[in-house]
């Protein structure tokens, strides 16, 4: 097949942000599929709750203290996270380094709080279905958090290793976008695990 050049692409920019690049869409797609997983887990919780007239089954609702501390830290972390998204657009390498160190630290702190949250639970995953669903939902979210923590740390390390190519700013921006998802995905879980049982018995 013969071809005839009618356009030239050399003048196009060689990097961009957000919806103009594939990794942004890839991040969005992963948010969609994991989000669907979360929605299904909310569904599992509600279904089991609906099936068991006495809820929670055999045990009082779980203690609120550590989970509320966790939730508060998560919500507050959205502030430095938002700053990350601002500074990547400005390609401000210097501020980003410290913001990313902060985000990495926050992720690790959250994991520690989550540990306390687990130890505060009054029943085990194999006690009954209420224990199963609480442990598994918390466990899934913890896995989510742990992978994000690792991502944050790796991103931070990359920012400290010499020259930061343009692409790295997009990466940090998308990582921050994903963090919002991690926080938002937690809130309904917090409501379901800790408050739904209290509403029933009130």
């Amino acid at each position: 097949m013969r071809t005839e050049p009618v356009a030239d692409f050399a003048g196009l920019p060689d990097h961009a942000f957000d919806h103009r690049v594939v990794t942004w869409w890839g991040t969005l797609a992963f948010m969609a599929l994991e989000g669907m997983g979360f929605v299904l887990s909310y569904g599992v919780f509600l279904y089991i709750m609906w099936l068991n007239p006495q809820w929670p089954v055999g045990f009082p609702p779980q203690p609120l203290f550590w989970s509320t501390v966790f939730t508060a830290v998560m919500v507050l972390s959205l502030v430095p996270n938002w700053l990350v998204m601002q500074r990547t657009k400005a390609k401000d390498n210097a501020s980003l380094r410290w913001l990313l160190v902060l985000m990495s630290t926050i992720s690790l702190v959250l994991l520690v709080i989550r540990w306390f949250e687990f130890t505060a639970l009054t029943l085990r995953w194999d006690t009954n279905v209420y224990g199963s669903v609480v442990w598994v939902l918390l466990g899934l979210h913890t896995l989510h958090l742990a992978t994000e923590a690792t991502d944050n740390i790796v991103m931070t390390a990359l920012y400290f290793t010499g020259h930061v190519p343009e692409k790295r700013f997009t990466d940090a921006d998308e990582n921050a976008m994903y963090w919002v998802f991690v926080v938002v995905g937690w809130l309904p879980l917090y409501g379901l695990i800790y408050f739904a049982p209290r509403l029933g018995s009130g």
Binding site: R2, E4, P5, V6, A7, D8, F9, A10
Partner: peptide
């Protein structure tokens, strides 16, 4: 059918 338009520059 005979000649396909294309772009250069990559």
């Amino acid at each position: 059918p005979d000649t396909l338009p294309v772009g250069t520059g990559l």
